[in-house]
Design a protein around this nucleic acid. Structure first.
Lengths: 356, 356
DNA sequence: CCCCGGACTGGAAACGTTTACACCTCGTTG
DNA sequence: CAACGAGGTGTAAACGTTTCCAGTCCGGGG
């Protein structure tokens, strides 16, 4: 019943050829038509399938790109993984996904594990490793980063153009007539970059930044931070560094009887699957995870040929939904504005090119 | 700079031992303390890491369990994958995830691919393959299914106890005073099973089933099906076979000015991440994906030792939120009921044991 | 003093491929 | 007609491990 899998030797014997010829026939080498036919027949008869482990041992390659990512639950990372798979598939390769749950130690182990399996490349999502640690762990395997969390080195990486996204969000709020805009900030690297971009964008709009309160990227972080922000009666809009924080804020506002968007406008960041289902549907900066994954996969595959070490910046998009509107009591000093009545969903491209 | 990775031979030379001794030292065989020390020192000095590909070739095992799943975007499948990883990690093994996007052909290819990599087992999520096809594709590799979509054979599998979940949902609605309950049904196997369970539960509650309309498990399916259901003025509650359908229904209801839960109660199925964020927060049957993944991984690991071929039934949980309430105009024939005011979130365990 | 067995070690054979190299057989060209 | 090259084939050596088997070296019991 469950005989051992046939090997190339079995095929060779069955077809009356040598294993070298079989290997060539299977891999598109030069073989006479007659031999090729006999071999294909034998393969079919025996149900032979190549053993990629043995093949990997001799070729030194595995056809696998290792992907280390925080988790699979968040739709953003899942989309990135999907993008990576997209381009690997075009090259007849596959991804091996390992999660590190944001623990640097787990990240190191994951890289170790993948290297022991001879991956041909590594895509690291949100890596926290120091450049030296990374070099030690990855050795000579080509690496590409997505939204790297640790400090840069000369490894190629793709990042969201966070600044452009933040700018689009702030400009949207400013144009609606908001003057005092608060910010719920994240503490990881992209959170910090968004915070700086927020300050810059506010300055560019000629506005004093409102209160800025930092927290985790999570619902709880948003809810906790909300307390501070909602106590300031002059704040008419809040820009959150993540959708999850925005959810926390929305809940806190609801509990206090603060109406969104009438009393308070809220902008999120990420455009997670469910941002459109919130009440009200959330205006947010869409992070194109799948594109980012695609770009990273291309980077890692091109690594051996590419001389430059680019940082690819992917442009986000502002998705305007119903959580933003003109402030109820516009600043009397400001020119009067008409209430914006956005279409159910309106997409505004951020103002930066896709790569830089 | 980027020298070739050191092999066990290099370690042996460096430590003045044979490769056999090094291998034993590394794998916990009998080795003198002195040799072990020298070898460990050499390993550290050289930065040696075992090559799992070579190891896999000789041992015939890979330490990998292949997981074939529809996609990574849906949080449910991601949770299942997480559960699988949980138990594999306890065994020092890892998962290799491949997506098939519900295409049987891609599923076959995925299995093929994983087998070529010598996976030690296979977990198939929502497999649509016929038993014969599966046997052909998987050969002698142990298989466990989760929510198998194709017909059963003697392969071990874990399923949600769909019937218990449906019963809990229907009983909840009936207890609230609803008499005419519609059903938005799915067309895949679990959709069909939920549909039958719905009929059974309605019968058990002594109620005539309301309209049943089948569609995809998606938002669009829900929205399309909603049209039919909402035209029936006697329907005061709808039980949906998935949360995504419930979202579509919620939107359709909102567009028509039908208030949920006042005019219409809605129950979903799955408890996806964002079910609690909907307006109103959705009452739904929670599918414990992570548990199901855990159970499946255990099944596949135990396969070589297990004689029985169990179908594990995992109990779902009814999560009562704000999308269900007493009907506005209760059936005059029914005894009067007080309006249920559920706590913000109330969890009701379904009435079946976890396995059968 | 011999023998036995336990603790430890090394040589060598696998595992299933790819591929360098040598060879053989033609037909073609000089 | 000799030499050569192209096309096709097979032998054998890798790839980096694990593991079987045959040792070697001891100490202790007969």
């Amino acid at each position: 019943m469950s005989r051992p899998r046939p090997t190339i030797h079995d095929v060779a014997r069955e077809a009356g050829a040598s294993i070298a010829t079989v290997s060539r026939a299977l891999n598109g080498g030069v073989v006479s038509a007659a031999a090729r036919d006999r071999i294909e027949a034998a393969v079919a008869r025996l149900g032979y399938r190549r053993n990629d482990v043995a093949r990997g041992l001799v070729t030194g390659r595995s056809g696998l790109v290792g992907v280390v990512l925080p988790d699979l639950i968040g739709p953003l990372y899942a989309h990135m993984a999907r993008g990576i798979e997209d381009v690997l598939e075009e090259h007849g390769m596959h991804a091996m996904l390992v999660t590190d749950h944001l623990e640097p130690d787990a990240e190191r182990r994951a890289i170790e594990l993948l290297r022991a399996r001879q991956v041909d490349g590594l895509v690291l999502i949100g890596s926290r490793l120091q450049p030296a640690e990374l070099r030690a762990a990855a050795g000579s395997v080509p690496v590409a980063h997505v939204q790297r969390d640790g400090p840069d080195d000369d490894a190629p990486q793709v990042r969201l153009d966070d600044a452009a996204g933040v700018r689009a969000a702030v400009e949207h709020l400013a144009a609606a007539g908001h003057r005092r805009i608060a910010h719920l900030a994240g503490t990881r690297r992209d959170g910090i970059e968004r915070r700086e971009a927020f300050l810059a964008a506010m300055a560019a709009a000629g506005l004093e930044p409102g209160p800025i309160v930092a927290g985790g990227f999570t619902e709880e972080g948003g809810e906790a931070a909300a307390a501070v922000v909602l106590d300031d009666p002059d704040v008419s809009a809040v820009f959150c560094a993540s959708d999850r924080m925005a959810v926390g804020l929305l809940h806190a506002a609801q509990r206090r009887g603060i109406a969104v968007p009438d009393d308070l406008s809220v902008v999120g960041f990420d455009d997670l699957t469910w941002a459109r289902y919130l009440c009200p549907p959330l205006t947010t900066v869409r992070q194109p995870g799948r594109e980012m994954g695609r770009a990273a996969a291309r980077l890692v595959l091109d690594a051996p040929f590419e001389a430059a070490v680019p940082t690819l910046r992917i442009a986000p998009t502002l998705v305007v939904r119903a959580s933003t509107a003109a402030p109820r009591f516009p600043d009397p000093a400001a020119p009067p504005r008409t209430r914006q009545a956005p279409a159910p969903e309106e997409v505004i491209a951020a103002d930066r090119p896709a790569s830089s």
